[in-house]
């Protein structure tokens, strides 16, 4: 019998070693895997290359900077335009203590999707003529210029869903899908926290968003209130 449910968030992240690449689903407060992030903090995994849409914007990812667990972030949004209320990540970035690779949000999502779909990359108009294009192939297709972008996978993905079943099928709430959906497909080990865990067969198959084949572990989410005030 397949049962992907883990007894605790600490058990779900217990085998994550140092110096791995970890994807984190979520967009600001929506669909952010806070329970698993806090378990990762407790475990003290170090040398993490993190992949997430954002860090330090009302998400809890910034706590991984408290004990300098992050080596590098790959994100679309990490440094605020204004100097107000800098995150720990931003302070450490400006001090040269952590690396940042800024990727356009759609390119980030599609690179992750490409990795999960077994594709060797894709051509996009996004980024042509900008610093993002540096060192990348530019190709003219039907009279327009496109940039070649490579797939982006990870060792682990930490996700947040509204409901999971014991087979790892996931449904989301509101705008909580965001990067959870492509990231579910693009890591060797995928761990999802969910507000509710139900027996297999109790989710409507017509409404499942992430098929269980992608998900390795499921754990019950703790309630954490997140709010971003700009």
């Amino acid at each position: 019998m397949i049962d992907k449910v883990f007894p605790s968030p600490d058990a779900a992240v217990a085998d994550i070693p140092d110096n791995v690449t970890i994807m984190f689903g979520g967009f600001v407060s929506a669909g952010s895997p806070t329970t698993l992030i806090l378990a990762l903090q407790r475990k003290g995994v170090r040398g993490i290359t993190g992949i997430a849409n954002n860090i330090g914007l009302g998400d809890k990812l910034d706590v991984l900077c408290e004990q300098r667990q992050l080596r590098k972030m790959i994100a679309s949004f990490a440094i605020r335009a204004s100097g107000a209320r800098a995150s720990l990540f931003e302070q450490q970035y400006r001090a040269g203590e952590v690396e940042l690779e800024v990727v356009p949000q759609g390119t980030l999502a599609e690179r992750i999707r490409a990795a999960g779909a077994g594709l060797g990359g894709f051509y996009t108009r996004t980024g042509v003529g900008t610093p993002v294009a540096e060192g990348k192939e530019v190709r003219e297709i039907d009279g327009e210029l496109y940039l070649f972008e490579r797939p982006l996978g990870a060792d682990y993905a930490l996700l947040k869903a509204a409901k999971a079943d014991s087979l790892g099928n996931l449904v989301y709430h509101g705008a909580g899908r965001n990067f959870n959906v492509p990231m579910a497909t693009a890591a060797r080990t995928v761990i999802a926290e969910a507000d509710e865990i139900v027996p297999a067969g109790s989710l409507d198959p017509e409404l499942i968003v992430t098929p269980g084949i992608y998900v390795d572990r499921v754990v019950l989410a703790e309630r954490h209130v997140l709010r971003w005030f700009g």
């Binding site: 949004f77 605020r80 759609g106 900008t130």
Partner: peptide, 8 residues
């Protein structure tokens, strides 16, 4: 620094 978000 800079943040691209969805702008590009």
């Amino acid at each position: 620094g800079g943040s691209i978000g969805g702008a590009m």
